[in-house]
Simulated assay, not measured.
Amino acid sequence: MGRVANAGPEFTVVHQLRAVTMGLDLLGGEFAQRNGLHPTDLRALICLLDAARAGTETTPGWLGAQLKLNSAGTTALLDRLERLGLVRRTRDDTDRRRVLLAVEERAVALGEMFFGPMIGALVGMMRDFTPDEVAVVRRFLGGVAELVAERLQDG
């Protein structure tokens, strides 16, 4: 594949997206540092919160696959999060061999304290958009998420 010219309105969007990604990564790092977390711990909490919002049951194996961690790495991660009171492991009532994961309310409260004002501002900003504009933003971000997921699967 040849080199793509780095000009035009499309690249302005690419550069803006890169700047947003960098800024969010820095904010996530600040949140992790303030709360004694490793950046992977924050990614794990986000995965678990998103899964809970989607109604998806989560297991250590599922989480490890999401984060591309081996079993030992996943166990160490969950041990840290459990020790900090941010995640709990419970036995599945229907299959006692299976362990389910849940985010503790303490983790949600920490996240809301740090990220809540920015999320509120984002929601407020989106209220100035027409429904059609919101649909375009959602379509764009959905497409970006798909491209990133495909790239992650390709290794």
Rank of each mutant, 00 (worst) to 15 (best):
A5M: 15
V136K: 13
W62D: 02
K68R: 07
R91W: 15
K68N: 10
A65E: 08
R43G: 09
V103D: 01
A52M: 14
R53C: 04
L49Q: 08
S71Q: 11
A135C: 12
A135I: 06
L27C: 07
V87G: 03
M126Q: 14
H15C: 11
L147I: 09
D132E: 13
V99W: 15
E146L: 06
A121S: 10
A44D: 01
N6R: 08
R34P: 02
L110C: 03
F114A: 03
N35A: 03
G36P: 10
L110R: 01
L63A: 02
L78Y: 06
G155S: 02
L101C: 04
R89Y: 05
Q16I: 09
E112S: 02
P60N: 03
M126H: 15
L48H: 01
V144G: 02
A135P: 11
E82I: 01
G23R: 07
M1P: 13
R43D: 09
A19H: 14
R34D: 07
R80D: 12
D132Q: 10
M125G: 13
G61D: 04
A76H: 14
L84M: 05
R34M: 05
G36E: 02
K68S: 08
R80T: 06
L122F: 14
G142S: 05
L26S: 15
E10G: 06
E30H: 12
D154Q: 11
E104S: 05
L101S: 02
M125S: 14
G28I: 03
G55C: 04
T59K: 03
E57C: 09
A65V: 00
D92Y: 10
E10L: 10
L122T: 12
T58P: 11
L42W: 14
R151S: 06
D41V: 00
L69D: 00
M118T: 06
G23N: 12
K68P: 06
M113G: 06
I119M: 10
T74H: 01
Q33D: 13
F31W: 04
M126E: 15
R88E: 07
C47N: 07
E104H: 04
T12Q: 12
T75F: 15
H38E: 11
R88P: 07
D95H: 09
T58N: 01
R89K: 06
E104V: 03
L101E: 00
Q153C: 08
G2H: 15
P9N: 07
V99N: 09
